[in-house]
Design a protein around this nucleic acid. Structure first.
Lengths: 197, 197
DNA sequence: CAACTGACAAAGATTGAAATCTGTCATCTG
DNA sequence: CAGATGACAGATTTCAATCTTTGTCAGTTG
C-alpha cells in the first residue's frame, strides 16, 4: 500500500498533527513523529530541513484549510454585500468552532501561529485577497463606493476592523454573551461605510 | 516633609513604578519596593493586601493616565466627526509614543495588563464611554445616523474595529511602513459608516 | 544509488536542592 | 493605640547537574 510504505511529506505532516494533538506543542519532538511513522528521525530531516520548517508546514496546512473553506463564499453568486456579510460570519464561526471543538488543539495551533509570522502574513494576504475580490465586485456593480481607495486598501481595513472576531488573540472573548450582537453591530457599521452614498 | 515621612498608597505606587522600571515585572519584589521607600515590607502590606493588588493599582494608574489625556478631546468644541477622528488619532499616537519612548517599560506594562483583566475591562469601559459621548453628540446634531443602534453599541463597534491601532497585542506592527495609511483608511471607513445617509 | 539508519556533538530542557519571596502576626515604638 | 517592625511558615524561584532533543553525517540496506 503506497500510503503506508512510502515516506512522503504529506504523511509526515499527518503524523505531526497527530503527535501535536497528543503531546501538545511543547513536548512534541521530531523523534515522536518519526516513531509514529515507524522510521528514524533522520528520515524526517530528509523532508524538512529543520523542526521549525516542519512546524511551519503544519501551521500552513491548518490555516489553508480555513482559506479554502471561505473561497466558496467568494465564488458564490449572491450580491457582494450579502457575500461580504456571509464571508465575515463564516470566518468568525469557523474560528469559533475550532476553539469550541478542541480548545487544546486550538491552543497548540495558537502557539505555532505565534512562532511563524511569515506563514501568518501569507494567510492574512490570502484572506484579504478574498475580501478584495468581493469588494472589487461591489465597486464594479456600484453597490459600494470606494471614496478614493482601492479594493485592496478597503479589504485590509475591513480585515483589520473585524480582528476581534477572527484573531486568535481574542479567542477567549468568543463565548461571552452578547458577542453576536457586537459582531453584527460591527459588520453593519462596516457595510454602511462601504455602501455607495 | 509630609511627602517623604508619611507612608501613603500614592508614595508606594510611585516607588513600585520605579522598581518596575528598574527590575522589570518578573524581578520586582515587594521587598524591593519597601527598600526603595526605606520601610519594612510589612508596611507595604498595610496599604495593599497582596502583591497582586499592588500590581493592579499600578496598572490602573498607568491606564488612567491615557484615559485622562483623551478626555480633553471629548470635552473639545469641534464637530463630533472631527473630534472622533482626533480621539482615535490621539489614542493611536499616545500608545505608539509609549512603546517608542521606552519599549522595556511598555513590555512591563503589557505583562501587568495581561494579569489583571478586571482592570483592563474597566479601562475599556472608560474609553468606550468617551467614544459614546462623542458619538451621542454626533447623533443629536444629526451628523451621524444610528441605524437602530445606541451610542454605546456604536462606540463599542468603533473601539473594537480600531483595535489594531491601540491594542498592545499589535504593538510590534506600529512602526511598520504604511501603518498610517492603513489607520487613515480604517478611520475613513468607520466615519463613513457612522455618517447620516 | 537513493532512501534510510543510528551514533554523535551541541543546544536546550528538566529536575531537585538551596535560596528567595510572600503574606501573617506577635511585638515594639512614638 | 495607630502605625511600623521583623521573624517566620509556606509558596515560589533560581541554579547547576543531568538528561533529552536537534540536526549532521558516515555508513548500511534493498
Amino acid at each position: 500500500m503506497a500510503t503506508t510504505d512510502v515516506l512522503t511529506a504529506e504523511r509526515i505532516l499527518e503524523a505531526t498533527e497527530e503527535v501535536l494533538r497528543r503531546h501538545g506543542p511543547a513536548k512534541a519532538t521530531v523523534v515522536d513523529v518519526a516513531r509514529a511513522l515507524g522510521v528514524s528521525h533522520g528520515s524526517v530531516y530528509r523532508h524538512f530541513r529543520t523542526k521549525t520548517a516542519l512546524r511551519e508546514a503544519v501551521t500552513q496546512r491548518w490555516l489553508d484549510r480555513t482559506s479554502a473553506s471561505l473561497s466558496g463564499v467568494v465564488a458564490g453568486s449572491g450580491a457582494p454585500e450579502e457575500r461580504l456579510r456571509c464571508w465575515l460570519a463564516e470566518l468568525f464561526s469557523a474560528k469559533r468552532r475550532k476553539v469550541g471543538d478542541d480548545p487544546e488543539l486550538f491552543a497548540t495551533y495558537m502557539v505555532l501561529v505565534g512562532e511563524s509570522s511569515a506563514v501568518v502574513d501569507r494567510h492574512r494576504a490570502d484572506l484579504t485577497g478574498q475580501l478584495a475580490q468581493i469588494i472589487g465586485e461591489g465597486l464594479d456593480r456600484g453597490d459600494f463606493a470606494a471614496a478614493g481607495a482601492t479594493p485592496e486598501v478597503l479589504a485590509r481595513a475591513v480585515f483589520d476592523a473585524s480582528g476581534r472576531f477572527h484573531d486568535p488573540a481574542y479567542a477567549r472573548e468568543w463565548d461571552q454573551p452578547g458577542i453576536d450582537a457586537e459582531f453584527t453591530a460591527l459588520v453593519d457599521l462596516l457595510i454602511r461605510g462601504l455602501r455607495a452614498a
